[in-house]
Amino acid sequence: MKLALLPIRSDFDGFAQLTQLHAQVRDVRFETLELDMSGATWFDANMCAPFGAILYKTSRSLNTVKLENLTPDVKSILSKNGFLMNYGVAKSADVYKTTIEYKRFEAKDERYFAAYIEQHLVGKGMPKMSIGLQKKFRESIFEILSNAVIHAETKLGIFACGQHFPKGGRLDFSIADLGIGMKENIKKKRGLDLTPEAAIKWATEGNNTTKTGNIPGGLGLKLLRDFVTLNKGRIQIVSDAGYWELARGAVTTKRFEQPFPGTVVNLEIKTADRQSYCLQSEKNLDNIF
């Protein structure tokens, strides 16, 4: 089976291509997928997370995946972050230390994931973010991961990848899962039959939660949204056929023709942000409870 990709950017069109790719390979078994990458003249490194999720799912259906005709630039990006190790290409040195390695985690690997984030955000040429911003960024990533672990019901794992752009003062990070998606989860747990994009909107607002046990929920994505709004960064969430984006304080939603087989959260952070994220020594520990 031969398929081809065009440039993949962290935007609606980039995701649309990946959802189309998934639709084409979804029901395929015992095939060799030859993916012609010659038209993919650009590949945003963080998009390795959703791309890798789809290819992993394809491989788990006992197909062989081959990435062919990679352009030199894209090959360099995808071998530096370790993505191509899954497809027979050795990892190359990340001289400028700007990549956050592509990794697949099991849902139970939360501590391993935490160590991975620590390893890649401390030192090593990563952006010189203020201490408060770095803490918020790290916690935001953990909130996304917790969300995937708690809600996705994924047996195929969680995929992460990131890239720092020192000149642009930007850090992109993506987490993808191959779970049931927000629309299905909300329908199953809350009985609400929402459109895919309305389901994402529901999950990112207020105290909405699909949690029903003794442990409350409903804050993770709201906290993420608050932080990114303050940072003037960007969040994109893709779940099922829904696309939701928060940029410059405004939310836009769209719908894909084909669904993504899970949920992806892309986080874009402005690393030069010098705002105080209120790490102060004054403590007010009264009236918490």
Partner: peptide
């Protein structure tokens, strides 16, 4: 129950969690 040795932003997070739990 009381808490100690917490930074202000962590206290704020805890307050939000507590409020959300009460609502929940």
């Amino acid at each position: 129950l009381s808490v100690a040795d917490m930074t202000t932003d962590d206290v704020e997070l805890l307050k939000r969690v507590v409020e959300a739990a009460k609502q929940y």
